[in-house]
């Protein structure tokens, strides 16, 4: 019997090609194209015009608004999500409560987009359930100062609606990693419940919490569907600027503006990811 050299290294390498080709074609090429077009004008000549276009007041404003919207919903979502994770401590991991909440979180975190716009129009639109109920019952008009649902402030609640579940999904493993022994050890050594959380619970959770927070920020920052369906006028946040640029390439007298916006977004995302990995390596001192 001769040894069959099946699966030699060459054949194995060949096995990597379909995926590599796929990733190159549909991830690398589009990313490079998206970023690259920002550096060229309509005639294919290198230009910085598109990038300087990022400094236009309306564009700049859309970055600023998106940043605070992302920051606000990330912080609030992280806190609310962490509270849910905390409240699930001590419940059975395979019980109906946990499976139900994690399934619901999975759906709501992924399912943002267009549907969220409908949900919030049905709830707090002008004819919305809550709007009308508040008006009838308390004579309180949430739109006294103007209808804000279709502008940037109107995005806060819908964004929170996918941020909270995302936090639950990403933070639950860290929260479950808190060992009851730590609380018991702290107590037998003389620590109160407050001491435990202050000196052990929060510090241990901090890196994961901040990591999740950054993920939430990135999530809001790159979200498009909800805003596209909800915001009716103008392009108050960057993804809507991208849409405007894609739909009407030449309106600003500048082609490839979408590419420049893409560069702007990627810069923010890369900074976020750098912050994330810096955070990870700092925490690694005591994490495995």
């Amino acid at each position: 019997m001769t040894a069959r050299r099946s699966g030699g290294r060459g054949w194995a390498l060949l096995g990597l090609t379909p995926f590599s080709a796929y990733v190159v074609l549909f991830l690398a090429v589009p990313t490079v194209l998206a970023l690259g077009t920002g550096l060229f004008d309509g005639d294919g000549a290198l230009t910085l015009d598109n990038l300087t276009g990022l400094l236009e007041p309306a564009v700049l404003r859309s970055f600023v608004d998106l940043l605070w919207l992302s920051g606000l919903t990330a912080v609030l979502g992280a806190i609310a999500g962490a509270l849910i994770c905390f409240s699930l401590l001590g419940t059975r991991e395979d019980g109906w409560l946990r499976t139900g909440i994690s399934a619901a979180s999975g759906v709501l975190a992924q399912f943002g987009g267009v549907m969220l716009a409908f949900a919030f129009i049905a709830l707090i639109g002008i004819q919305g359930l809550l709007t009308q109920w508040l008006l009838r019952t308390f004579d309180a008009d949430i739109y006294e100062g103007g209808v804000w649902l279709y502008q940037v402030p109107g995005l806060i609640l819908p964004y929170l609606y996918f941020q909270i579940p995302l936090m639950v999904i990403t933070f639950m493993p860290a929260m479950s990693g808190l060992k009851p022994q730590w609380a018991e050890a702290s107590a037998t050594l003389g620590g109160t419940g407050a001491v435990f959380w202050w000196r052990i619970g929060f510090p241990v959770l901090a890196p994961s919490f901040l990591g999740s927070l950054l993920l939430l920020f990135a999530n809001a920052f790159s979200s498009y569907g909800t805003a596209a369906a909800l915001v009716s006028q103008g392009a108050p946040i960057v993804p809507l600027q991208v849409r405007a640029a894609l739909i009407s390439e030449t309106v600003l007298g500048r082609e490839n503006m979408a590419g420049a916006l893409a560069i702007g977004m990627i810069v923010v995302m890369v900074v976020l990811m750098k912050a994330y990995s810096a955070l990870q390596s700092r925490a690694e001192r005591w994490m495995r």
């Binding site: 990313t31 998206a34 890369v270």
Partner: peptide, 27 residues
């Protein structure tokens, strides 16, 4: 190559769909 594969697979978190779509149109 494990680390590289992981890196590649996680890139789409950093590249939002709205950015990807700009380059997907010509593709």
């Amino acid at each position: 190559l494990q680390r590289w594969l992981e890196f590649v697979c996680l890139i789409p978190i950093t590249v939002p769909a709205i950015v990807l779509v700009v380059g997907l149109a010509p593709v």
